[in-house]
Design a protein around this nucleic acid. Structure first.
Lengths: 217, 217
DNA sequence: CCGGTTTCAATCATCTTTGACTTTTTTTAA
DNA sequence: TTAAAAAAAGTCAAAGATGATTGAAACCGG
């Protein structure tokens, strides 16, 4: 994103647009994305600093220059993931026209979202955080912020649903659990199940849960 | 749990399963259950041989006498979990009378099942197996066997549903995904959500999916 | 051009985990 | 009672991971 790096020395903060700063930011990004790829491909526990460095194509020493310790990388990776995830959610919902089949498109968008590699990475972190208080502390704010944003975004996508907030809440939670349950199933088991049928069925149910004002959009 | 057994010294041949063998088996069980507790409390990655031994109240050397290597413990733990899980499923379903509200009781039984510590342990292993081929090879047979047993058990619980196998499949998968999605949510996030409402709603939907032969049981 | 800084690389000591090996204690069978 | 066998405990070296330290190359402002 922005070439902003947390400077520790007594350098004027405004002067941070030189070539060096940009290269530094690029390297930091490279490391963060390598770490995320490690989470996805190797799992959180096997994501060692050595592996991240190799994945990023850097020496371990060079990497530890940008991130003094392992947990610093994790912290930045969580921030990075959170920002991208939030952005992807907003974009995918914003691209749905008001006169479109919002139930269908919204559902498919979320289905795509939970199957995105980014969600796999977040899932890995979430599971690891269950038994790792330090990671939990890092991840928790991002989780709740995303949950909140998800709720708000859904509310904006379906303004007519505000009339029946009870049904709306059930619909949202149901959607969330079905989608995430299926995503987890796909991640851990094989991918040879009839998930699409369940998505279709869920779509039907969501329509039934909606207030009967609009026609069927 | 105590290795107390009746000692008959006048029968040397049948004594093959004597005290020593029993004590050995008890110790093995102790180790296996300690390992499972470690999976639950520390996570799979942090379950080292040292921690298992400490959890079991044994020296590490003693433990490695019974299980030469770490993976051997994992193997036995998976078998142990699988057997107990299968047994619990069968028992809880078998305890449902034919004239009871089978939808409600079956659903609650499964809800209880996915929130059981045993399921947490299995979940930990499943997630770790995603990026660990060796563990995957150990876990996969147990997974598919359990899935198969789950399907069969449900079929036996709802024999009238055989007439509409399509709806039955959707109902089963839906149930599975909602329940597991919620369970994962409870494990990784906080437990302060309105899961019960979703269970109630799911119960309603399952009733609607059933063939309209029986009254409402 | 140069002093100082930033980036990158390499090495080092420490710690943890693992599995093999050895020793001690307990139990079994002759 | 005693010797073999099994269980339990303790010791050891190898491998891997981490963070710190040192050294070298590129870059910037003056």
């Amino acid at each position: 994103m922005t070439p902003r790096a947390n400077r520790k020395r007594s350098q004027p903060d405004v002067e941070r647009s030189g070539w060096q700063a940009q290269k530094s930011a690029a390297t930091r990004n490279l490391i963060i994305e390598a770490a995320i790829r490690c989470f996805i491909e190797l799992g959180y526990a096997s994501t060692t600093t050595t592996r991240i460095a190799r994945m990023a194509g850097l020496s371990r020493g060079a990497m530890l220059h940008h991130f003094p310790s392992r947990i610093d990388i994790v912290r930045s990776a969580v921030d990075h993931l959170h920002a991208k995830r939030l952005n992807a959610l907003r974009n995918s919902v914003a691209s749905i026209p008001a006169d479109a089949d919002r139930v269908r498109l919204g559902l498919r968008a979320y289905w795509k979202h939970v199957n995105h590699p980014m969600s796999v990475a977040f899932f890995e972190l979430s599971v690891a955080a269950r038994t790792d208080p330090e990671l939990e502390a890092i991840l928790s704010p991002a989780q709740t912020a995303f949950d909140e944003a998800w709720y708000q975004t859904a509310l904006e996508l379906f303004p007519e649903w505000q009339s029946d907030r009870k049904a709306f809440d059930v619909a949202l939670e149901l959607t969330r659990y079905v989608m995430e349950g299926m995503a987890v199933n796909i991640m851990t088991h094989e991918r040879t199940r009839r998930h699409e049928q369940v998505v279709d069925y869920l779509e039907e149910q969501l329509r039934a849960l909606r207030p009967p004002t609009a026609a069927n959009q």
